Computed example of a mutant assay.
Amino acid sequence: MRVIGNFLWFVLGGVFMGLLWWIVGVLAFITLVGIPWGRSCFVMGQFSFFPFGKEAISREELYQQSDIGTGALGGLGNIIWFIFAGIWLAIGHVFAAVLCFMTIIGIPFSIQHLKLAGIALAPIGKTVVTREVAEAVRMQNANASLVHLRNKR
């Protein structure tokens, strides 16, 4: 089902939003100071091409440790990103979602566009993994939190 969903997504417009992400990434790389944002653009652009069966999660959640993108500098980077590019990419995804919602068959595509719009607002510190990996990480983190809470008593 994922293959069919990704194929239909790509053919029916996902290619345009993915290319838009990549264009913003190229522009960010040209500025040199935008290289960290450019890298995120290429990762999220690839995700935008084929989003079904994948999920964007925090690298801190995945690796259980902070890095430069998940800490305070990542937060500052996301604020800068939001002002210069994030809001525009999010608007593009919301516009595409509204168009997809107009048809019954487009509703799953609309949901994907809305997820991508949320990611477009703050992509720094996130990585893309399969849905199974994301679920396993969340389950493992929940179990670790439960053990930690039980040991506090």
Rank of each mutant, 00 (worst) to 15 (best):
L76Q: 01
P36F: 07
I105K: 09
A142Y: 09
W37C: 04
V94N: 05
K115G: 00
I104S: 00
S40T: 06
Y63H: 12
A56I: 09
T130A: 10
I119W: 07
L114P: 00
L73P: 00
G53Q: 05
Q140I: 12
F7A: 15
I68Y: 09
L73S: 10
S58H: 03
R138A: 15
I23M: 12
V33R: 07
A134H: 14
V128Q: 05
L20R: 11
Q112I: 05
I80V: 14
F101N: 00
I105A: 10
F95T: 12
R39C: 07
I87P: 00
W22E: 08
P108M: 05
I91K: 08
G18N: 08
A144E: 13
I35A: 12
E132H: 09
L116A: 03
G77S: 03
K54N: 14
A97G: 07
F84V: 13
P36E: 04
M17L: 12
V128G: 03
G77Y: 02
F52T: 06
G74V: 10
V137N: 05
E61P: 01
P36G: 03
R153Y: 13
R131Y: 13
F82D: 00
V24K: 00
V15C: 10
A56V: 06
V3I: 15
G74Y: 10
I111H: 02
N78T: 04
V94H: 08
L12S: 09
M44T: 02
V128R: 06
V94Y: 11
T127A: 04
V11F: 13
T103P: 01
